[in-house]
Amino acid sequence: MGIEVEADGLTKSFGRHTVWRDVSLTLPAGEISVMLGPSGTGKTVFLKTLVGLVRPERGRVVINGVDIVSCRERQLYRTRRLMGVMFQDGALFGSMNLYDNIAFPLREHTRRNERQIRSIVEEKMAMVGLSGAESKLPGEISGGMRKRAGLARALVLDPEFILCDEPDSGLDPVRTAYLSQLLIDLNAQIDATILIVTHNIQMARTVPDNIGMLYRRQLVTFGPREVLLTSDEPVVAQFLNGRRSGPIGMSEEKDAAATAAEAMTEPDLDDVRGVVPQLTPTPGQPYRQAAARRQERVMRILHQLPPAAQQGILAGRHEVSHERTG
């Protein structure tokens, strides 16, 4: 099963610019979580903090009993072998073709022979739809392909904690839908803890078990998906609906006058808030253990959640049990 990841009181600044402060959350083991947030709110920095690439000024990140922030280098490297990271721009090795890129972690960390490596690499490349592109160099393929190759490389060591930085940006809507399904199937197959950083609303509504949002140097919320999807917070509502009217401006914040003016000029669009059914694994894939575990967990804390979220959860409960028997 995947591993639980606990962030506690994280604060990060670059010089005098604070990216976010006092961020605490727990990614439940084996579940899929999404971190939302407007551009530049520090989602990538947060992801890098969880894997120990960025050192926060304060706080802890506990993975598998190891505090990533303060542990020794040896232990950090050992813990990282449990992780697979898909970077925002793929971060492929420019001097190697896709095959060698994806085979790299296997060659470095395992004693598999070349035939075994080939079969694993080909399987992962097929999984992300890159079969036939083995001999291409990263510089010769599109941004979307680089990303998918980055995901394939993140998966070859069967990680227990998968982090994806904006898996959807640079992908067309159809590929994004396939990718969403792929992440769900992957979770069903290997039961890994998954964190997705994105600003794609469709993905945020249909894929995760939990959603959080970073805004104005803070973690606005983090919890079961129903909480954010039914939230009345102006920031959340604006973000989910992708509107101009609301507290989020082109740069970080904006004044009240601009907000009022925009509310007047913006056409009245449909409100897309509300709980929609979560994706389920493709038929033929194993049952997603995380769904049942999450359900138990959420039912225990149900009474602490806002009424709208409770309703959403209770409606969704039906689907989970349905799926298991069906």
Partner: peptide
Amino acid sequence: IREEMDAMEVMGIS
């Protein structure tokens, strides 16, 4: 600057 170093580090390779 292509983040290859970061990628290598998170693969557990120094």
